[in-house]
Amino acid sequence: MSDASIDVKAETRLDLLVNFWKHFRTNKGAVIGLYFFIGLILVAVFAPLIAPHSPIEQYRDAFKAPPVWMEGGSWKFILGTDAVGRDILSRIIFGSRYSLFVGVVVVSIALSVGIFLGLLAGTFRGWVDTIIMRIMDVILAFPSLLLALVLVAILGPTLVNAMIAIAIVQQPYYVRLTRASVISEMSREYVMAARVSGVRTPRLMFKTVLPNCMAPLIVQAALSFSTAILDAAALGFLGVGAQPPTPEWGTMLAESREFILNAPWIMAFPGFAILITVVAINLIGDGLRDALDPKLKRS
């Protein structure tokens, strides 16, 4: 008896996953994005093994060395060196760690706090709802980067503070999304059935309603992962994010902007790294949305 039941359980979980993959796979762009993202994670994890040089070591004999395919380039520095003789490829490889770190931390903070506030607002309505949503409206009323800039200026310019600031700026989207889903789920009959069978409000919020609201939140998390990386790079560029000599992509851009005319590769490669990463994650997000949204499913 118990053996049979375990089999059934495994089958349904697997079915869900297989079904999801079937829908996700039809979107070629999303699959390419996913492969790139997995590659990026591997690069970040094994950065010390892959990178040819230390990201902060200065080679005094090779300032602004061009990349290998340009005249004067050498295989020692494949993407060239920057103004103080550091290997750009190594810095970009190590920089992927910071970008992924920023994305993960910002999304986790924004998602967990956003879900909690959204659940409170959607469940209790009334004055709780009014207070939470008006605060979120105030945050939304400011241009996001400007608000992040002000917050970092208050907290002090470090990467951690930049992440906190970006998380706060992204908060309202999660709160609104959760609240809207919760309100629509709360009116369903299974919620009333749960109440009649004695489910109290906290359990109702987290165990009954929340799992049914997750699909749009997963999509939002994937999409705001790239926004977080972009915002962190922007703050780094403005000099209030990660501080030199940290090999963060935005900070690298900022350091090299005065050489854009005579050594453009110093600025180009970190820029490309940001661009490709953000595009890849956005593609994954689009694919997730198509695969998770039942209205768009064609089966």
Binding site: E189, M192, A193, S197, V199
Partner: peptide, 27 residues
């Protein structure tokens, strides 16, 4: 206890039948 009109809306789609039946007992 109550039984609702719409059998498609009155069961939580993320809850297995076994959990639907044992949750009231647990609580």
């Amino acid at each position: 206890q109550i039984v609702f009109q719409n059998p498609y809306g009155s069961l939580n789609p993320r809850q297995k039948v076994g959990d639907v039946l044992t949750e009231p007992l647990k609580l």
